[in-house]
């Protein structure tokens, strides 16, 4: 078994809000093609971890070594802001829980999907539009809506548009915050199917933060269970959910209402 080094190595990630603990000593590795689920209830610290990695929150301590395309490893938590923004634009994607946070609501769907390509320097209108149309098809948005504003889309369609916008520039790592939150159950199912096949087809690495165990069961290869800012259990998704060891994990799993 070839043992390449991980795409992302997080160690000792800690965030304190005064006396309150956001997250404490969080550590994990992530390899290409792997989806890591981070589950926990509100206040577990899972969103804090995501925000620290995305750069919207400044951590109190820890390192996050990311292996860039040229093979060099860089601590994303210590990057200069300019370099970090450039890296986020070119290499990472962030799918927000509320698609409005990840879209430009005032420009067309096609422009939303085309923008990352334009930001990377592409200058051929026809080809940019072609790429946008292909991606709309991939995320199952009717292509005749390419010139419509996202504000005319349903919630599920907006979320699929946000996913297309994030994936068009072929990122290596995608952070997802409750990607199916707020959507109807049937819409969620459709979205999860899509995410599942995209992750597999594109060999993406992803970190999916959610409180929904059904989501991680479908999407994640591995799981971190967090409680009060700390990781209490980690392992293969089906192993953690079918054979939970930690008291809190057992509680979490038992609380899920099965249809």
């Amino acid at each position: 078994m070839t043992d390449e080094s991980p795409l992302l190595s997080v160690r000792g990630l800690t965030k304190r809000y005064g006396a309150h603990l956001g997250c404490l000593d969080v550590g994990f590795d992530l390899w290409s093609g792997e989806v890591l689920g981070v589950v926990g209830e509100s206040g577990s610290g899972k969103t804090t971890v995501l925000n620290c990695l995305a750069g919207s929150v400044e951590p109190s301590g820890g390192t996050a070594l990311y292996q860039q395309r040229d093979g060099r490893r860089v601590d994303v938590l210590r990057m200069a802001e300019a370099a970090r923004r450039r890296m986020l634009r070119a290499d990472w994607g962030i799918v927000h829980q509320n698609p409005r946070d990840g879209l430009r609501m005032s420009v067309s769907a096609g422009a939303n999907v085309g923008e990352p390509l334009m930001a990377l320097g592409q200058r051929h209108y026809g080809r940019i539009r072609g790429a946008a149309l292909r991606w709309l098809e991939t995320v199952e948005i009717p292509v005749d809506r390419v010139d419509d504003l996202p504000s005319t889309f349903s919630g599920g369609m907006q979320q699929r548009l946000q996913i297309a916008r994030n994936l068009v520039a072929q990122p290596r790592l995608v952070l997802m915050d409750e990607p199916t939150g707020g959507l109807d159950v049937s819409v969620q199912a459709r979205l999860l199917d899509l995410l599942r096949s995209l992750v597999a087809d594109l060999g993406l690495a992803a970190i999916v933060v959610t409180h929904d165990l059904g989501v991680v069961r479908l999407l994640a290869h591995r799981l971190l269970v967090m409680r009060r800012g700390e990781i209490v259990e980690a392992g293969l998704t089906d192993q953690v959910l079918d054979d939970p060891h930690h008291e809190y994990t057992q509680l979490l799993v038992a609380s899920v209402i099965h249809p």
Binding site: R85, R89, R104, V107, S108, G110, A111, G114, E115, P116, M118, A119, L120, R123, Y125, I128, R129, D147
Partner: peptide, 15 residues
């Protein structure tokens, strides 16, 4: 971070 400026031009051409 000038992608948005081209987005504006893209929208003009589209509309």
């Amino acid at each position: 971070d000038y992608g948005a400026m081209h987005v504006r031009l893209y929208e003009d051409i589209t509309r």
